[in-house]
Design a binder for these strands. Structure first.
Length: 739
DNA sequence: TCCTCATAACTTTTT
DNA sequence: GTTATGAGGA
């Protein structure tokens, strides 16, 4: 028997074909729950075990570190220790490594820093000062986004200046130019640079390109619909003329266009590789028929779309539950109440349940409800660990030790703790450094040298400040010297003591215990890097930390429910899913309602959420929701209307447990005094989720609403003894109960 | 130089 | 209901 042939067992024909097609370009269109990961991992294992390809020659690129880790784990099971020789990682991680090894050939020193969004912003503000632009009139955030878009299209500041179409782009190009220089001076790159410089490197330096092309014979790209132009170019450069490139994606799950992801890459792929084979995986193994049907109906509203015929052999399953809560507190308590009930009555584990939302701010109400009820939960995202102030401060010191040219991190730590070097002194120092054409930190070292030699200070500084600067430079120098031969954890301890950071945190007013806990947690993480060479250990630690997302640290647990944004939920699946906040302005988000493209992306986001569910799906909405301190009534999401009514059912009545007083106090028709005018024209009639009273049937919930021949047909779920009724709006004696 | 208090401005989504 | 910024006082 051919070795590795058992890897094909249990695959459907399309999956099998995808695994066996190993040479030449291959595009796999993989619907949700179609066994995509299985196909990718089996394909790699097949290459290794059946085709005898050395694992060193295979590279698989994923979107998140978590996906990479999962893939590696699965491959370990399929090919054992050989999995270690595979290259599996995110685009950014691969580029970071490539640049650290080969960057010198395009003038990038190996000890470069990676700047995150915050660092970028502070550099952009500096660049704006140099370009003499008012940050008030030109929001730095917006400029950053223009720069980032340009870079993801592989444009530098010259390119942007040439192709600028608006005044704002022209301004941005001017800032961009200074920004590039500042990055170079700080020996730093931003996220987009990782990709752009890697492309530049492979394009310009043929020796390196050929080496990598001949090393990697087989290339796979996961989540291809979320790649941007730079990433796609990189993939093509790596694939070379051999073109054993396999890309896997689903255009309907493209939700990162705001980060310059470009679905058109799928079209480009077919143009760039006309001989490419396309395989569609259409059988869904994850969800019930009802869930899949709802998802398909929703997504089919999108205009620009490749039709797909998803199907499942799973049963129809339970209908989707829609519920309108009074406010976000009641929404949260409904969710938790329902989870309790499922755990009690249907042997569901809390860990099987996930609550998904559009924006992180929505997690607050849910967290509070969990705390109140004693429900264990795991929050994915939120305030990121590495973004916490104390952790970032410590990291900034480590960055400075690794790359003393890094002035963003230098400025960050110069006054943490306060050591008598204020803004004025820093300004004077910076001016002098610029004058002397030396880096800021070198200027500080000069002052230290002058002082110890008893010479006068070359910069006009108050003597206290001059001493403080000299002490600081000496301290950092000592730490740098020590970093070359100290284990990471010991280095961290030295930094905490020498800089006074430990005392600063522990004697601080602001939750000192919690903040110190975070430092200790960071210390734990760093411990894992001890095995490596000390100097290299610092480099890898910093690199890894710069490139991890929070979803990466997500671990499954049986007792805790999961709170997660819709974006982060991509690639995950749960038996029970609650999607909350199905309201106009939230899902779809108000910032995405300007253009049809953005709206379609919101719809895809909703689609991603729905297709995460295996057995039970709940679609929730709050009638009133607070935003930015104030609170106002909401309008039901159009997405609810785009799901056919026969798939939906209203939540059982007793679930809405809020005391009646709260409801009635708002008043059925009374003017909403504190409510801002609704941003969207409210439908003059009824909407899905509305509560109505019928003169003979009693109270009910609208579950469907269709226009028909000059009238509207409403489907209403009444009390259990009455059941579901279809009524024509113009005839039915219906009264809306509220809002 | 550093800290406190007020106010303004804002919140998509993340490698 | 937050977090970033600024003025003014110690």
């Amino acid at each position: 028997m051919t070795p590795g042939v058992e890897l094909l067992e249990g695959l459907n024909p399309a999956q099998k074909e995808a695994v066996e097609t190993i040479d030449g370009p291959l595009l796999i269109i993989a619907g949700p729950g179609s066994g995509k990961t299985r196909v990718i991992t089996h394909r790699i294992a097949y290459l290794v075990r059946a085709c005898g390809v050395s694992p060193r020659r295979i590279i698989a690129v994923t979107f998140t570190n978590k996906a990479a880790r999962e893939m590696r784990d699965r491959l370990q099971q399929l090919v054992g220790a050989q999995a270690d020789a595979l290259t599996v990682g995110t685009f950014h991680a691969f580029c970071a490594l490539l640049l650290r090894r080969e960057g010198e050939s395009i003038g990038l020193p190996a000890n470069y820093s990676i700047y995150d969004a915050d660092d970028q912003l502070s550099l952009i503000k500096q660049a704006m000062e140099l370009a003499e632009l008012e940050p008030k009139r030109n929001p730095p955030q917006a400029i950053r986004s223009v720069i980032s878009k340009a870079k993801s299209l592989l444009m530098d500041s010259r390119g942007l200046a040439q192709r600028a179409e608006t005044y704002f782009e022209e301004i941005s190009a001017r800032v961009f130019h200074h920004y590039e220089e500042l990055l170079a001076r700080n020996n730093a790159v931003d996220f987009d640079d990782l990709l752009m410089k890697a492309v530049l490197l492979l394009q310009e330096v043929s020796e390196v390109r050929e080496r990598y092309q001949s090393r990697y014979q087989y290339l796979m790209v996961d989540e291809f619909q979320d790649t941007n132009v730079a990433q796609y170019r990189l993939a093509r450069l790596l694939a070379g003329d051999q073109a054993n490139i396999c890309v896997v994606g689903d255009p309907d799950q493209s939700i990162y266009s705001w980060r310059s992801a470009d679905i058109r890459n799928i079209l480009s792929f077919q143009q760039d590789y006309p001989q490419a084979k396309t395989i569609s995986l259409e059988q869904n193994y994850r969800s019930t028929g009802a869930i899949l049907e709802a998802a398909q109906n929703l997504i089919s509203v999108n205009g620009m779309r490749l039709q797909k015929g998803l199907f499942t052999d799973n049963g129809q399953g339970a209908p989707l539950v829609v519920h309108e809560a009074y406010d976000q507190e009641e929404e949260a308590s409904f969710v938790l109440g329902e989870i309790d009930r499922l755990v009690r009555e249907e042997s569901v584990k809390p860990g099987d349940c996930a609550v998904m939302y559009r924006v992180n701010a929505q997690s607050r109400a849910l967290e509070e409800a969990c705390l109140h009820r004693g429900t264990k939960y795991r929050l994915v995202g939120g305030v990121r660990f590495y973004q916490r102030r104390e952790v970032k401060d410590l990291l900034a010191y480590l960055h400075l030790l690794h790359n003393p040219a890094d002035e963003v991190n230098l400025s960050r730590v110069i006054s943490v703790p306060p050591r008598g070097i204020g803004a004025k002194s820093m300004q004077a120092l910076a001016r002098w450094a610029l004058d002397q054409q030396i880096p800021l930190f070198t200027a500080m070292q000069r002052i230290a040298a002058c002082r110890s030699a008893g010479e006068p200070c070359p910069v006009a500084l108050p003597s206290r400040a001059a001493k403080a600067v000299a002490d600081f430079a000496t301290m950092v120098d000592e730490l740098i010297a020590s970093s070359a031969n100290t284990r990471i954890v010991d280095l961290i301890d030295q930094v905490l003591e020498a800089t006074g950071l430990r005392r600063h945190i522990q004697s601080g007013e602001d939750r000192p215990d919690e903040r110190w806990e975070n430092i200790l947690e960071f210390r734990e993480i760093a411990q894992e890097y001890n095995a490596e060479e000390p100097a290299d250990g610092l480099a890898t630690l910093l690199e890894r930390i710069s490139l991890v997302a929070d979803v990466d640290s997500y671990e499954e647990s049986e007792e805790s429910i999961t709170l997660i944004t819709l974006h982060q939920a991509k690639g995950l699946e749960f038996p029970v899913v609650f999607i909350v906040g199905l309201e106009e302005g939230l899902l779809p988000h108000s910032r995405s309602m300007e253009s049809e493209e953005q709206l379609e992306e919101e719809r895809r986001l909703c689609y991603v959420g729905i297709t995460r569910a295996q057995h039970h799906l709940y679609l929730l909405r709050a009638f009133r929701r607070g935003f930015m301190g104030s609170t106002g009534p909401t309008v039901s999401s159009r997405f609810l209307r785009e799901i056919p009514g026969h798939l939906l059912t209203a939540a059982k009545r007793e679930q809405s447990v809020k005391p009646a007083s709260k409801r009635s106090s708002f008043g059925a028709r009374g003017p909403a005094i504190d409510a801002p005018p609704a941003p969207m024209p409210v439908r003059p009639t009824l909407e899905i989720g509305d509560l109505v009273r019928h003169s003979s049937f009693g109270e009910g919930v609208v579950t469907d609403f269709v226009a028909s021949a000059g009238d509207h047909e409403v489907t209403i779920q009444f009390r259990e003894d009455v059941g579901v009724k279809r009524l024509l709006l113009s005839f039915a004696p219906l009264e809306k109960i509220e809002g």
